[in-house]
């Protein structure tokens, strides 16, 4: 695994060459397009700049989405970790709830939109809950696995040296499960984004999903494509931010894995 040792400019180049190539292709192939549905990339970027690259546009079109995403994803991670730790530490409880969890998590989050509307209305609250519900499951299940997979000897260490429950939780259980918690949160982030867009097509007056739907309904095809570009960029940036945090928090794990790979 040489990749992790590459310097960051090389890493960026490695990641960006394909998107750049595709954008260039898109630019040239669409340059003289007369199709209403596939306008030239140049005009798409013009409306993208107009819709998104200014404070007013960001405040109306992006900020509400970020707020929903932050609340929903945050709630999912917090709930998933807390409940996951409890279920992971009390195997009996987990055995008793496992079938229910398996059924609930099999339901696609967006399919619950109508029910959530009935339960919570169409406001911010409903959207946050919907995102949180959909994103909760990967965090929960990964946390349970993570807690269960902790080296049993470490629990014995905590008993011999008489750690309090809280100390054990924060010094052994959470760090021990953190690689799985992060893996779950990464999936949860992707799910959050999907549910965000879908939830914003109902009862919103701002945000990416609302913008997208509105553009499509008012036949503003350039803006619609621009919103897709914005969505792509948002997803990419969020993923990078997530990776930066993960790299920092799981430094030990990354290095340890690299060492295990180099000397099996």
């Amino acid at each position: 695994m040489k990749r992790s040792t590459l310097r960051w400019p090389a890493t960026v180049a490695l990641e960006l060459w394909l998107p750049v190539l595709l954008l260039a292709l898109w630019w040239f192939l669409s340059a003289r397009s007369k199709s209403v549905y596939f306008p030239p990339l140049s005009s798409i970027l013009t409306s993208f700049a107009h819709d998104w690259l200014n404070p007013a546009g960001l405040a109306k079109n992006l900020l509400p989405s970020l707020e929903l995403l932050g609340l929903g994803f945050g709630l999912a991670v917090a709930g998933g970790v807390i409940i996951g730790v409890v279920l992971g530490m009390v195997p009996r409880l987990e055995d008793a709830t496992r079938p229910l969890l398996e059924i609930l998590r099999a339901i696609p989050g967006v399919a619950l939109l109508p029910i959530f509307i009935v339960l919570f209305g169409i406001d911010v609250q409903m959207k946050v809950y919907l995102i949180a519900f959909g994103a909760f499951w990967p965090v929960l299940l990964n946390t349970i696995d993570g807690v269960r997979g902790i080296e049993p000897l470490l629990n014995e260490v905590s008993r011999v040296f008489r750690f309090s429950r809280v100390r054990r939780l924060f010094s052994i259980v959470v760090p021990g499960a953190s690689p799985q918690i992060f893996a779950g949160a990464r999936t949860a982030l992707a799910i959050s984004l999907i549910i965000l867009v879908v939830s914003e097509t109902v009862g919103a007056n701002g945000g990416i999903g609302y913008f997208l739907l509105n553009a499509q309904r008012s036949f503003a095809i350039n803006s619609m494509w621009g919103a897709i570009v914005a969505l792509g960029i948002l997803g990419y940036v969020l993923n990078i931010a997530f990776r930066v945090i993960e790299r920092y928090a799981l430094r030990w794990h990354r290095l340890q894995q690299a060492r295990l790979e180099s000397q099996p």
């Binding site: 080296e151 000897l153 470490l154 014995e156 260490v157 905590s158 040296f161 008489r162 750690f163 309090s164 100390r167 010094s171 052994i172 760090p175 021990g176 953190s178 030990w252 794990h253 340890q256």
Partner: peptide, 26 residues
């Protein structure tokens, strides 16, 4: 001191913190 010394140390903490932890916990 556990026979399985290697597995009895926390891989996510530095050596110093491993040694400090029982003291901090008390």
């Amino acid at each position: 001191v556990f026979q399985d010394y290697s597995r009895s140390l926390m891989p996510w903490s530095s050596v110093l913190h491993n040694v400090m932890l029982p003291l901090r916990a008390n």
